[in-house]
Amino acid sequence: SSGGSSILDRAVIEHNLLSASKLYNNITFEELGALLEIPAAKAEKIASQMITEGRMNGFIDQIDGIVHFETR
């Protein structure tokens, strides 16, 4: 797709992000992006959206560029 990722790509990214949230206590956007094979800024945006929508527990430290995952 030309304008970003398809629905399937997005679903795969979100699935992998949720998997990462179970493996890590926290991770930088750079590391997360590398893990998900997407730019760091996109990793931040998707993580932020999932947390806001209540689909993933955690919070974002924008100063240090880190996602902190919280286990249920």
Results as ranks from 00 to 15, higher is better:
residue 38 I to E: 01
residue 11 A to P: 06
residue 47 A to M: 06
residue 9 D to N: 06
residue 3 G to S: 11
residue 21 S to N: 03
residue 12 V to H: 10
residue 6 S to T: 12
residue 59 F to P: 00
residue 66 I to R: 15
residue 10 R to C: 10
residue 56 M to W: 04
residue 66 I to V: 14
residue 48 S to E: 10
residue 66 I to Q: 06
residue 56 M to C: 03
residue 56 M to F: 10
residue 47 A to E: 00
residue 28 T to R: 04
residue 40 A to F: 06
residue 43 A to Y: 00
residue 2 S to H: 11
residue 68 H to V: 08
residue 14 E to Y: 05
residue 58 G to I: 03
residue 21 S to A: 11
residue 69 F to H: 02
residue 29 F to H: 00
residue 29 F to R: 02
residue 49 Q to S: 08
residue 24 Y to P: 03
residue 62 Q to A: 10
residue 72 R to V: 12
residue 39 P to T: 12
residue 7 I to K: 10
residue 60 I to V: 09
residue 38 I to W: 03
residue 52 T to N: 14
residue 29 F to M: 06
residue 9 D to S: 04
residue 36 L to T: 01
residue 34 A to W: 08
residue 44 E to V: 15
residue 34 A to E: 09
residue 68 H to N: 06
residue 2 S to V: 12
residue 61 D to W: 05
residue 4 G to W: 00
residue 35 L to N: 02
residue 37 E to F: 07
residue 60 I to G: 01
residue 29 F to G: 00
residue 50 M to N: 00
residue 13 I to K: 04
residue 36 L to P: 00
residue 4 G to M: 08
residue 38 I to F: 01
residue 56 M to H: 01
residue 42 K to Q: 15
residue 19 S to R: 15
residue 6 S to Y: 03
residue 66 I to G: 04
residue 70 E to T: 07
residue 46 I to E: 02
residue 6 S to I: 13
residue 21 S to Q: 04
residue 43 A to G: 02
residue 35 L to K: 04
residue 35 L to Y: 08
residue 11 A to W: 11
residue 21 S to E: 05
residue 11 A to G: 08
residue 49 Q to V: 08
residue 2 S to Q: 12
residue 46 I to M: 08
residue 15 H to L: 14
residue 3 G to T: 13
residue 38 I to A: 02
residue 55 R to M: 07
residue 55 R to K: 10
residue 59 F to I: 08
residue 15 H to V: 08
residue 28 T to D: 03
residue 69 F to S: 01
residue 55 R to E: 03
residue 39 P to Y: 03
residue 8 L to D: 13
residue 29 F to C: 03
residue 25 N to V: 09
residue 48 S to L: 12
residue 65 G to D: 04
residue 3 G to W: 02
residue 33 G to A: 10
residue 60 I to M: 04
residue 11 A to I: 10
residue 65 G to C: 05
residue 37 E to T: 07
residue 52 T to G: 10
residue 38 I to T: 02
residue 37 E to S: 14
residue 45 K to Y: 10
residue 28 T to L: 03
residue 64 D to H: 15
residue 13 I to V: 09
residue 61 D to Y: 06
residue 55 R to Y: 05
residue 61 D to H: 07
residue 4 G to I: 12
residue 54 G to D: 04
residue 20 A to W: 10
residue 12 V to M: 11
residue 61 D to R: 06
residue 48 S to I: 10
residue 34 A to M: 11
residue 25 N to D: 13
residue 10 R to F: 12
residue 13 I to T: 05
residue 15 H to R: 14
residue 8 L to I: 12
residue 35 L to F: 09
residue 44 E to D: 03
residue 46 I to A: 04
residue 27 I to K: 04
residue 42 K to A: 15
residue 19 S to I: 15
residue 18 L to Y: 05
residue 37 E to V: 06
residue 6 S to R: 10
residue 67 V to K: 02
residue 24 Y to L: 10
residue 22 K to Y: 08
residue 15 H to I: 12
residue 71 T to V: 09
residue 40 A to K: 07
residue 64 D to A: 15
residue 15 H to C: 14
residue 68 H to R: 08
residue 19 S to C: 15
residue 42 K to C: 15
residue 48 S to Y: 08
residue 68 H to K: 04
residue 37 E to L: 08
residue 72 R to H: 13
residue 69 F to T: 03
residue 7 I to A: 13
residue 46 I to H: 04
residue 62 Q to M: 11
residue 64 D to I: 11
residue 69 F to M: 04
residue 7 I to D: 14
residue 1 S to D: 13
residue 67 V to L: 15
residue 62 Q to S: 12
residue 64 D to G: 15
residue 5 S to V: 11
residue 23 L to Y: 08
residue 56 M to V: 10
residue 23 L to C: 14
residue 59 F to K: 08
residue 30 E to C: 07
residue 68 H to W: 14
residue 37 E to R: 13
residue 19 S to E: 15
residue 50 M to A: 04
residue 11 A to T: 10
residue 38 I to C: 05
residue 59 F to C: 11
residue 14 E to I: 08
residue 60 I to Y: 03
residue 27 I to Y: 04
residue 17 L to D: 02
residue 59 F to V: 08
residue 7 I to S: 12
residue 62 Q to C: 09
residue 3 G to M: 10
residue 13 I to D: 04
residue 23 L to N: 09
residue 7 I to L: 13
residue 38 I to L: 07
residue 56 M to P: 00
residue 24 Y to I: 07
residue 24 Y to W: 07
residue 4 G to Q: 12
residue 20 A to F: 14
residue 1 S to M: 06
residue 51 I to W: 02
residue 10 R to G: 07
residue 14 E to G: 03
residue 70 E to A: 07
residue 15 H to A: 14
residue 41 A to L: 08
residue 16 N to R: 14
residue 63 I to L: 11
residue 1 S to C: 13
residue 22 K to W: 06
residue 32 L to D: 00
residue 49 Q to F: 04
residue 36 L to M: 05
residue 1 S to F: 01
residue 62 Q to I: 14
residue 52 T to F: 11
residue 1 S to W: 01
residue 10 R to A: 08
residue 71 T to L: 07
residue 12 V to C: 14
residue 40 A to Y: 04
residue 28 T to I: 02
residue 4 G to F: 02
residue 3 G to E: 14
residue 33 G to Q: 02
residue 26 N to G: 06
residue 69 F to I: 04
residue 56 M to L: 15
residue 8 L to W: 07
residue 8 L to M: 13
residue 2 S to R: 06
residue 22 K to E: 09
residue 59 F to M: 08
residue 43 A to T: 04
residue 9 D to I: 05
residue 19 S to M: 15
residue 48 S to G: 09
residue 32 L to Q: 00
residue 1 S to A: 13
residue 14 E to T: 03
residue 71 T to Y: 07
residue 47 A to C: 12
residue 7 I to H: 12
residue 5 S to E: 12
residue 6 S to P: 14
residue 49 Q to E: 15
residue 49 Q to W: 04
residue 45 K to L: 14
residue 5 S to L: 07
residue 23 L to H: 11
residue 20 A to P: 02
residue 1 S to V: 11
residue 23 L to P: 02
residue 1 S to T: 13
residue 34 A to I: 13
residue 16 N to P: 03
residue 8 L to R: 11
residue 61 D to E: 05
residue 48 S to C: 13
residue 66 I to N: 05
residue 54 G to V: 02
residue 8 L to N: 11
residue 44 E to S: 12
residue 45 K to D: 11
residue 37 E to I: 05
residue 66 I to K: 14
residue 32 L to K: 00
residue 72 R to K: 14
residue 53 E to R: 05
residue 27 I to A: 05
residue 22 K to C: 11
residue 44 E to C: 13
residue 30 E to L: 09
residue 6 S to A: 13
residue 30 E to P: 04
residue 32 L to G: 01
residue 50 M to H: 01
residue 29 F to P: 01
residue 71 T to R: 09
residue 42 K to R: 14
residue 55 R to N: 04
residue 11 A to E: 13
residue 34 A to N: 11
residue 47 A to L: 11
residue 60 I to T: 03
residue 14 E to H: 04
residue 8 L to C: 14
residue 43 A to L: 10
residue 15 H to G: 12
residue 32 L to P: 00
residue 46 I to W: 05
residue 63 I to K: 13
residue 59 F to A: 06
residue 62 Q to R: 13
residue 62 Q to K: 14
residue 36 L to E: 00
residue 35 L to D: 00
residue 17 L to P: 01
residue 16 N to Q: 12
residue 20 A to Q: 06
residue 2 S to K: 09
residue 65 G to M: 07
residue 41 A to M: 08
residue 60 I to P: 00
residue 24 Y to F: 11
residue 32 L to H: 00
residue 34 A to V: 11
residue 19 S to F: 09
residue 51 I to V: 05
residue 64 D to N: 15
residue 61 D to I: 08
residue 69 F to P: 01
residue 17 L to F: 05
residue 18 L to Q: 06
residue 9 D to V: 05
residue 4 G to R: 08
residue 35 L to Q: 04
residue 10 R to K: 09
residue 33 G to V: 04
residue 65 G to N: 06
residue 50 M to G: 01
residue 6 S to L: 09
residue 36 L to Y: 03
residue 9 D to Y: 03
residue 2 S to L: 07
residue 15 H to Q: 15
residue 41 A to E: 14
residue 60 I to H: 01
residue 72 R to F: 13
residue 2 S to M: 08
residue 14 E to K: 03
residue 20 A to D: 02
residue 48 S to A: 13
residue 48 S to W: 09
residue 34 A to R: 13
residue 61 D to P: 01
residue 19 S to D: 11
residue 58 G to F: 02
residue 22 K to I: 08
residue 59 F to R: 12
residue 37 E to K: 14
residue 2 S to A: 12
residue 49 Q to P: 00
residue 42 K to V: 15
residue 64 D to Q: 15
residue 14 E to Q: 04
residue 38 I to H: 01
residue 67 V to A: 03
residue 13 I to C: 05
residue 39 P to Q: 05
residue 44 E to K: 13
residue 2 S to W: 00
residue 23 L to K: 13
residue 57 N to C: 13
residue 27 I to R: 04
residue 16 N to K: 15
residue 35 L to S: 03
